[in-house]
């Protein structure tokens, strides 16, 4: 089950941008010896996943890679390499391999929590004491109408934490959208300008994953009404409006779901049709007149002889 925990760690990772340390790769030889057989030369993939790929390396931080290397992925047939698990590698050697992978792919390492890799310089923690952090987040529109998110990271004693990477993300029905990362400044503020303006209020999360001597923290915020609201007429240019229930919908019996026709053309059209049909009506009245006249004529013919005899 421990690989699941690896998975959890991976799950926490959020993209961040930070130059990699291109240390000399003592891990290169180790990788070639222990890993390349399955993962391919330079981790390009083979029987096992391409762990040298950008996709993998951006999605996993050093701690996760180290742990996966040490503990193995038993379910997938990957052995545990850590000495403590009966493997062949020391923790330092594993760290070397991880460093090699990073350097290899020239990719970025998300903020490490426990990885024995070249550590994130924790400038804020002059004292080596472990400290918990907390975060708050605010929002305000800027002059361009863009929403500016400010996440403030501080220790529990109220002192700001600077130089740390805060990742912003947005939860939606269809998953979480990464908004990017920002470093905290001297006041502990990480600032992110949202270029997108989603039209419906939704939740923004700022996450700090922690550092060597800092605990992780996160904050969430319901985005205020955006600058651009949905206008009803904007929904679709055909002007079709249909509200439906949450239940699957059957078209209402005998009713129109599509929009009503535009008023003025309809009126004109109706007027023309009505005009034609009323003229028909007038002509029919002439026909009725002919019939009446014929009836009167007949009556005269029938009555006339009687009148004469009387």
């Amino acid at each position: 089950m421990r690989w699941m925990i690896v998975v959890f760690l991976m799950a926490l990772v959020i993209l961040s941008v930070q130059p990699a340390r291109a240390d000399d790769p003592p891990g290169a030889k180790l990788f070639a010896t222990y890993c390349a057989a399955c993962h391919g030369a330079a981790g390009k993939g083979g029987a096992a996943p391409a762990i040298g790929s950008d996709a993998y390396l951006t999605a996993n931080d050093n701690a996760a890679i180290a742990q996966a290397t040490g503990d193995g992925v038993v379910a997938k047939g990957m052995p545990a390499w850590s000495k403590s698990k009966g493997g062949a590698l020391t923790d330092d050697q594993i760290a070397d391999i991880v460093a090699y992978l990073r350097a290899l792919a020239q990719t970025t390492a998300p903020g490490p929590a426990v990885a024995p890799t070249p550590a994130q310089p924790a400038r804020s923690s002059a004292n080596a004491e472990y400290a918990q952090t907390r975060m708050t987040m605010t929002q305000s529109p800027n002059a361009d109408g863009e929403m500016v998110l400010v996440a403030t990271l501080e220790k529990f004693d109220g002192s700001p934490v600077s130089g740390m990477v805060v990742a912003f993300s947005r939860a939606t029905t269809f998953g979480t959208v990464d908004l990017g990362t920002a470093k905290t400044d001297s006041r502990g503020n990480a600032t992110l300008v949202m270029r997108e303006q989603p039209e419906r209020a939704r939740y923004i999360t700022a996450t700090f994953k922690g550092a060597k001597t800092l605990g992780s923290s996160a904050a969430m915020l319901a985005l205020e009404k955006p600058a651009v609201a949905i206008s009803a007429g904007d929904l679709n240019t055909a002007g079709v409006r249909l509200s439906i229930d949450e239940e699957p919908l059957l078209a209402p019996e005998g009713s129109l779901i599509t929009p009503n026709p535009p008023l003025l053309p309809t009126l004109l059209f109706g007027l023309v049709v009505l005009g034609v049909w009323s003229t028909y009506g007038y002509v029919v009245s002439q026909v009725v007149g002919i019939w009446k006249s014929g009836r009167d004529h007949q009556r005269e013919n029938v009555l006339a002889p009687k009148a004469r005899s009387a």
Partner: peptide, 23 residues
């Protein structure tokens, strides 16, 4: 899921919280 995943790794990540200023 995000919240739960965070919660399960809470041993490493001591606090995950929102606050009054947010939600």
């Amino acid at each position: 899921e995000l919240a739960r995943a965070v919660g399960d790794t809470a041993a490493r990540l001591p606090l995950f919280r929102a606050n009054a200023q947010t939600t």
